[in-house]
Nucleic acid binder design. Structure first.
Lengths: 336, 336
DNA sequence: TAACGAAATGACAACGTTGTCATTTCGCAA
DNA sequence: TTGCGAAATGACAACGTTGTCATTTCGTTA
């Protein structure tokens, strides 16, 4: 039995109900201190009574900004949760909301298409979460008035980028092996098209070559344990294989299981390192040493980068978030 | 060296450049067929030349809607990725974008607070992803003009809800045991505050009681493998324990490892079922039978429910998305 | 009490679209 | 050519805010 007069209650309605001008209502919302307390109370009472809610569209139209950051998901993988979590938290902290769309697969998976769609939405800047290669990566130009940050390990000619230091993480793991007397490191990759996998492989290769070691042929996996197991069976037969770097923990676990099934011990016979440090969730007393990336931190950095660039959309920076080696017992020190 | 005249190009600028009226530009965008082809081309050319992008705020203000659905994340867990994926896909398909905010922990974690924030943002309706209890759940009333769907296993007095049928899934798993001759089923729970865990436990209890079986004391876990391992050590000593239902796959794996370490075989001595069907990703040749929930489907349903209710925000419905039992080899048929 | 500066409030335009309704232009038959 | 209905286009208001500037009210001092 409340007011059914109009669909939405406007500031004007509140103003009339409170016996003040529209502008005063506006002030109560935006600069409360400039309104006398008695007036303010009256307005608040009227807002409450009428169920007033400020109109986002009108406000944004006048202000020329939205208070929203766009997020484009090109790909949704496990690590993405933590990253989104970081983005969302950082956004909340800075008073921004997120506007999200998904552009997976299909012809539409280009940066240009995503940017076109985003720029029709309420956003002051945007973040692209790109985990695979897209056709127009190099040729893409972001809208000049919309700060754009791409989460990708590749460098972009005009946009800011943020990434885990996947390459550095892989290098770190290799050096960890080599510093403990291992003469070579085998590598089990993830899916071919994954940029993460490619970067991890690149880092592995670089680390070996730096030491003058010829990298052996990498084994192709698909992120899942079964492919790691298959790789492990092959590796078990290589007498020179004392160290294996797997592109994620699941495959590393597969490798370890295969080695054991072949009568080899980890770490006594073969040492193993994985990525993502998530095996402990699934395996009790897990011994797997693993390179962990701080996805949450990544998201936070990406958001901060966008917000920092709102005033200067054409600025460009490159941020790398380093990984951490979580040491457990899966690596043997051959020097001992 | 392009136009630096104004910050943003408006329809009016395009109209002048194309030598038509502002309204004609509007028509080119919204009802192209009502504009002569030659005129249309001229306008398109002008839009291209000036880099015109329609202003979201002005458009929404006039139309009275945003084309965005709000999503509130109260909690961000593993299954949430797939759910968000489903929501995003369904939204994309129906031409909606998502407006997302996070409300985790703290005093602010009430439905009322989330609704207040959301209703200041560009949204036509909203989805709350609620995996834990909040104080004001029962007393909460959604804004009358904003369709609200809550993803939660609990029924809500006024809002539509969507949920996995966690209870049914647990019941299904128990009956699977009982139908194969098991006389009792032990249960390993997840974290106490988790609604999922509570519902799974409820279903387990109900299934046993329906058959006149007194449910044994449930074992308290925390979702991770180590807690499952601890539970497994306890269960290994119970002579009447032939069947274990663990509230997720990680703990189920912990249980299995403990049983094996105690010299018991799965499934010969003890049968095990888990939840979420994700062990195969981490364990090669996994034998764990598991109840899988279709999180993606859940997200799709939630979004569709919101969109369907946009015109009638006060409508209310309850949707349950059933789980699926993925059969592997971890359950022994005692009748055989 | 008068005069004054500061504080509080108000009137009005503007943001960039779309809806309404009026006007112009077009194609075609007489 | 003229006339006519339909198609194409345009003028103007409106959506609900906030910024600008003018006006009113207040508290203080002379």
């Amino acid at each position: 039995m409340a007011t059914m007069d109009k669909k939405n209650v406007s500031m004007n309605d509140v103003a009339i109900a409170a016996g003040v001008s529209l502008k005063t209502v506006s002030r109560v919302i935006n600069e409360p201190d400039s309104v006398r307390e008695s007036t303010r109370d009256r307005v608040h009472a009227a807002m409450e009574a009428l169920g007033f809610r400020a109109n986002f569209a009108a406000r944004s139209l006048k202000l020329g900004r939205y208070g929203c950051i766009g997020v484009v998901l090109f790909h949704l993988s496990g690590g993405a949760v933590d990253m989104i979590d970081g983005i969302a938290d950082a956004a909340e902290e800075r008073g921004f909301a997120l506007t999200m769309i998904k552009k997976c697969g299909g012809e539409k998976m280009t940066l240009a298409d995503a940017a076109r769609r985003m720029s029709q939405l309420p956003v002051d800047g945007m973040i692209f979460n790109l985990r695979q290669m897209v056709d127009d990566f190099d040729s893409f130009e972001a809208p000049k008035d919309l700060k754009t940050v791409i989460i990708t390990p590749m460098e972009h000619p005009t946009c800011s980028t943020v990434s885990d230091d996947q390459e550095g993480g892989a290098r770190m793991a290799c050096e960890y092996f080599l510093n403990r007397g291992h003469k070579n490191v085998y590598f089990v990759s993830g899916k071919k098209e994954s940029l993460s996998s490619q970067c991890r492989m690149k880092g592995w290769r670089a680390a070996l070559e730096t030491r003058g070691i010829e990298p052996p042929e990498p084994l192709q996996g698909d992120w899942n344990a079964d492919s790691g197991y298959a790789a492990g069976l092959v590796l078990a037969d290589k007498p020179d294989c004392t160290a294996v770097l797997a592109a994620n923990d699941c495959m590393a676990n597969g490798v370890m299981m295969a080695l054991r099934d072949k009568g080899l011990s980890v770490p006594d016979d073969v040492s193993v390192i994985g990525f993502d440090d998530e095996l402990y969730k699934t395996i009790p007393n897990s011994i797997l040493t693993s390179v962990k990336f701080r996805h949450r931190e990544l998201g936070i950095r990406a958001l901060n980068e966008v917000v920092a660039g709102l005033e200067a959309p054409s600025s460009r920076s490159r941020t790398l978030v380093s990984g951490v080696l979580v040491e457990r017992a899966s690596v043997r020190d051959l020097r001992a």
